[in-house]
Design a protein around this nucleic acid. Structure first.
Lengths: 202, 202
DNA sequence: CGACGTAAGCGTGCGGTGTACGCCTACGCA
DNA sequence: TGCGTAGGCGTACACCGCACGCTTACGTCG
């Protein structure tokens, strides 16, 4: 009956992602999001209990676009496509990666996605413990690969710094040099192939 | 010539880990660590440039114990043992997991460990891109599995909450029920077996 | 043995954060 | 037309990381 809300939670999430994409994770604050929306800081708390919930909202928004319908293909190809879709959604907001990691449990879109993965695994014949281990391996690889990619380990530092490191860690430096030439998509895909290959033969 | 330092950087790291283990990540602050050492807050800055460096110091301390000498065994068993050692070191300070993730690149102990992994891979015949993909797969699984384990996804919530979720995500609920019975060590090991199995056949 | 200069240790203060509390006021319904 | 509900926001507090500059303990040298 009284004054209606002027914002949707989705708009809140969009503003949060905008701040995140433009200014980075360190710049994300209740004040910054409020300014992005042209509101007072405390107005946000009409939509959200605390900062944590705002972050979760942003993550859900970022993941809401992932298609959980598997393509028509063999089960391993289906898994590959499903995994790559989440990877793409995460890559769209690299500054939000730590938040995605922190809030993925409460994210309905990712729960739906996990359910879809389990459907594929079940149809492929995985049951009981085997299915647990398979999901575990896939999920862990996806999460770990995303982390390693976006907090890039040694691909970021200059060639001189790398060769300096080569004195102490020769193989690491050599591997980093090789990795520098490989596109991230290929590297991710080949790592995923290792996991899928392991799933194919138990 | 003048007054000598009263602390070592190692003591600083130990105090940081003590605060972390006892009070959790949220309670970690420069003031808390200083209090732990019985010093003023600003005294810490004689040993450390900023909070970031203090965190890195703590991570390095936590990882400094990992043995990087591979056991005498087949190469896949060697890799398994190396990976499990890091997992154990991380598990010793669960509250520090996010810090470990954030600072692992600058952590000398983990660089040495990665070098050791590459030695094993090289001796096993991996070269060039194959070696990059293999390291990538192992590292990603380790990191991802550690994250999923310590920010436990659905193993934490009560049985009633899980069955309530079962209406919307039936397979997820069923899988969570199965996973509840499996010890974390086994689950990690079997997921790792999937990766190693994938590495064995290219 | 005493004075000195260096650097360890710390007190204060600033700009930032998340958020509890309470006021004002725009709105939809009677 | 008036009213009560609830949206929006201003203020304030406790906490954070850290810049700055003072005091003070110490090792060295005259």
């Amino acid at each position: 009956m009284p004054r209606p809300k002027s914002l949707t939670r989705s708009a809140l999430a969009a503003a949060t992602l905008a701040v995140l994409d433009r200014d980075g994770l360190a710049a994300l604050s209740m004040r910054a999001v409020a300014a992005e929306l042209g509101m007072g800081t405390m107005s946000l708390y009409r939509y959200v209990a605390d900062r944590d919930e705002l972050e979760a909202l942003a993550v859900e928004q970022a993941m809401s676009g992932v298609d959980t319908v598997p393509p028509k293909a063999l089960w391993d190809k289906q898994l590959a496509v499903l995994v790559e879709r989440v990877r793409a959604a995460i890559a769209a907001h690299p500054n939000a990666v730590p938040l995605t990691m922190a809030h993925r449990h409460r994210c309905p879109s990712l729960l739906r996605w996990a359910e879809a993965v389990l459907v594929v695994l079940t149809e492929a014949g995985f049951t009981g413990e085997q299915r647990v281990f398979a999901l575990r391996a896939l999920l862990s690889y996806l999460i770990g690969a995303t982390e390693t990619e976006h907090r890039s380990p040694l691909s970021g530092l200059g060639t001189d710094a790398m060769s300096r490191m080569g004195e102490e860690y020769p193989l690491l430096a050599e591997t980093a040099g090789t990795a520098r030439v490989i596109p991230p998509d290929i590297e991710f895909r080949r790592g995923l192939d290792v996991v899928l290959s392991g799933l194919r033969r138990p």
